[in-house]
Design a protein around this nucleic acid. Structure first.
Length: 299
DNA sequence: TAAGATAAGAGGGACAT
DNA sequence: ATGTCAGTCTTATCTTA
């Protein structure tokens, strides 16, 4: 059993099967402005460290001076993180930037739990957000939108499979607003992001939809072939991964539906169908007729 | 009931004006 | 800067097996 320090996912070191990758997120989406209120509205399974709300930033920002990949931080990054920790000890808000930062962090606090994000990702998000504030990008923009964008940026940067829609939904900001902030950050901070790796997406979808290892492996080879044929450019990675999984399911006669996979992947059935069709045609894959198994029950 | 088909609409990138 | 265009994805509805 290995825990990915970057994505916070726990998976088998041998086969890569993801054991748990996210906490229940179907609870109410409520704001809380005090510890008591937070405790009242919190769902079960809340980590105790978060319940001790007064511990604040120090519980969020770890003390190891290394980034999410384990490499030591640069000197400037180190001092930035140090400052973040220090601020938390202060009872007074010194400037508008500090104030903004505190507010942003209370948002981030909630997101962390809902999206099952690791501490190192939180640090990265904080770093990005701080940069954004220094550049004055917060002016005229909502804090939740910007912090969500920073978080999504950190996810993309580390290859953590969280979709823009997910992040936006959990923080209760319109997807397009987060999207706008995200592009702004990319531009202003002079960053380029690698395309989200469909392979990473697959682990998530496969475990969420309860698919077998065999199916997952075959879906992986399908994705590789698709990549080699350059038919994946410009397509939604999640949709591609989902379609590859579905195709693999039909090839292996694994009992599943588009609906299940679509739900797990966070894309629509139509998208899966389109990618599915494209994959099947481009790779010239013959799909056997579905053998109807009389199992009596769905599970 | 699941899968496929089709249409309308949103949002963003590329490109020209 | 602004408008147009092609391509993608989503939502909704209808048909098919």
């Amino acid at each position: 059993m290995v825990t990915d320090g970057v994505t916070g996912e726990r998976f088998c070191g041998g086969c890569g099967f993801v054991i748990t990758e996210r906490v229940d997120n179907s609870g109410p989406d409520l704001r809380a402005f005090s510890k008591e209120e937070y405790d009242d509205k919190a769902r079960t399974g809340m980590p105790t460290s978060l319940a001790v709300h007064d511990m604040g930033l120090a519980t969020i920002i770890g003390h190891e001076n290394s980034d999410s990949t384990g490499k030591p931080l640069s000197a400037s990054m180190k001092s930035t993180i140090k400052r973040l920790r220090t601020w938390d000890g202060r009872s007074q808000v010194h400037s508008s930037i500090d104030k903004n930062f505190r507010q942003a962090f209370s948002e981030l606090d909630r997101l962390k739990d809902k999206l099952a994000i690791s501490d190192s990702l939180i640090e990265k998000t904080a770093y990005i957000y701080r940069k954004a504030l220094e550049k004055g990008l917060a002016k005229g923009r909502s804090i939740p939108g910007l912090i969500a964008a920073a978080l999504y940026l950190a996810c993309r940067d580390t290859g953590t499979p969280r979709t823009l829609s997910e992040v936006a939904r959990q923080i209760n900001v319109k997807r397009k607003d987060v999207s706008r902030c995200y592009r702004l950050l990319l531009q202003e901070l002079d960053l380029t992001m690698p395309v989200l790796d469909p392979v990473r997406c697959m682990s998530r979808i496969a475990s969420e939809a309860g698919l077998s290892e065999k199916v997952k492996r075959q879906a992986l080879t399908i994705l590789e072939d698709a990549n080699n044929m350059e038919i994946t450019a410009g397509k939604d990675p999640m949709g591609l991964a989902a379609a590859a999984l579905y195709l693999s399911c039909t090839m292996n006669n694994e009992d599943t539906t588009q609906k299940v996979i679509a739900l797990a992947a966070g894309v629509t059935e139509v998208t899966i169908r389109n990618r599915y069709k494209g994959l099947k045609e481009s790779l010239n894959i013959q799909v056997p007729n579905k053998i109807k198994l009389n199992l009596g029950t769905n599970f």
